[in-house]
Write a protein that binds this DNA or RNA. Structure first.
Lengths: 184, 184, 184, 184
DNA sequence: TATGAATGAGGGTTCATTCAT
DNA sequence: GATGAATGAACCCTCATTCAT
């Protein structure tokens, strides 16, 4: 039932946008009555939080999976594969990404995004520490922070704004950005 | 009068946050009646738009000024100076930056931000075109897009999240990021 | 306008009872929209408070007037006249008295009633102090408290329950009660 | 089971007040499901009614017991003992008395209170009829009504408001009130 | 032009009651 | 009998917008 509500919430968000995310609308989409929401959630924002949580976790999961799979690999191709996975994950539900990234008050999606960044960042930091030859930057925590934020933003904007840049191009550019930063 | 309203709107935004940005509140802050707002703006969101516009323009102005000033300069120090100017501009009104970047539905500030990016991007592209030796990336428009977006996001997050990274450090890192990207 | 709302509130209270005292109902009775209530009252309970205040003050006023008028008089007839005035005041709007005394959570009407008691009590105490021969009770503040509470309750119950006791009878009884108490 | 529910209702009333007296809360306190309430009570107010009934009966029982015990006694001390018993009964559960007398719409506790008054009144009337020398008032039913109501209200207010009057004082005063009324 | 009282749809939430299990 | 999830009408209140003055 919680799942049904979360699904309905996601649907409302995708189909009608954040402004339409009212308890009445979500309940209607879930095919239940407004009062029933409150048997599973303390208030409206808890529903929204869980919808965003689920989405963020989904995305984090895919990226983290790609990372742990590829992380044994050699050279710069690792980065390309990971970013490729990230793009794929973001492309999976562009409509929801748009709402989460652009309509939600960032204060709501911010913490989830930060969690994602932390999770991915830790993996990356571990990797960099294990292979010091892969980074010439002096402070690993800092270069991780920089790398993760830069990649994340570029990926999100590329998916949402769909600039005149091909997928291969953006992958090349991001790889070049990261490689140039860490290795030169 | 429009200016008075915009100033009031900005004040409300900074002092009380986005949720308090109601027409009544803005009118009160401007010392006029709610009805009078509608003589100068078609609706509430037009006021908000103009507030954000003004802020974005201010910031763009400062960065563009720094760019045209420094753009004749030599080498990588140019980048450092420009990023420095950007940080300074963002630090000028951290409270408003927080509201604009974190509380506003990004959809509202998005277009203004895009305008800023375009403006700065054009300057950068012009520069890179004029001095091809400064970039080894194949498509200037793409590398400009990448550079501008990466820098912008890192700068905003550094100012807002205040991570344990000194100002000099973040400048070094951004310079390294850009230099590594464009030159290697 | 405040008066119009108070009148409407009183009407709803009298006509439909306390449970029907909803903001929508009061607004409808006042011929205005629900939102307009909030231009004159901070919340629903403020409306109710004022309705009860007005009623209590009205009643207190009448009784106090009778008291100051008669208080120069001689002997026990003074008490009779005052209680008569009290009965008259309570009979003036029996329907509202019923709601105020029986439907309202006493916590709401309690403080107003207490104020009325205090006001009347002070007058009575002053009188008793000025004419010590009128009371043989040792502690004036206590005998005042006892007298006021006893009279008030008897008067209210007589008006509301309409027991098989004539008006003259109840006046006689209350006079006997008070006289016997204070003078014997 | 009915008893369990009544006990739970009383608990909720005492612990959390009238506003918290919801079917869900009472059911939870009784360790049963909300739906089960309706197997024993037609609706919520029936539960409340029975809780109040029980409490009123308890109180009536104690007072009536004291009355039949003392009623053979001589003189005014009888009154004192009975009022003493009443105060003791009211003090037994001051928290519940407060809720019943101050938070409940009086309309709900009114009929129960009236029953108590009738019961006590009948005892008193019987007594007065049997010993005509104890009252000089002309209509026993009327003087009983007056006496019972006056005593009841004074006792309740004394227990709840805790004015600066000692227990002995209030007993003295009530005795004086009654004695003066009936005998002078 | 400026006002600001009035609007009223819609918001989130509660809770007595029902009924399929 | 017992359950407890589901109901949905009704609650109080907000606020962008309007319009008579």
């Amino acid at each position: 039932m919680v799942e049904r509500i979360v699904a309905a919430g996601r649907e409302v968000l995708v189909e009608d946008g954040y402004d339409a995310f009212s308890t009445n609308r979500v309940a209607a989409a879930a095919g239940i009555s407004p009062g029933s929401l409150y048997q599973y959630f303390p208030d409206k924002s808890a529903i929204l939080d869980l919808v965003v949580d689920r989405y963020t976790e989904e995305t984090a999961e895919r990226v983290a999976a790609a990372m742990s799979e590829r992380i044994g690999g050699i050279g710069i191709e690792v980065v390309r594969d990971i970013v490729d996975a990230l793009l794929t994950a973001l492309e999976a539900d562009r409509a929801l990404l748009r709402v989460v990234a652009e309509e939600l008050p960032l204060a709501r999606s911010g913490p989830r995004r930060a969690a994602l960044e932390r999770r991915v960042g830790e993996l990356a930091a571990t990797y960099l520490l294990a292979r010091p030859e892969h980074s010439r930057r002096p402070v690993p925590s800092v270069s991780t922070w920089v790398t993760v934020l830069a990649i994340e933003n570029l990926a999100v904007r590329w998916v949402l704004d769909q600039p005149a840049i091909t997928r291969d191009q953006i992958l090349d550019e991001i790889v070049a950005l990261v490689a140039g930063y860490l290795l030169s």
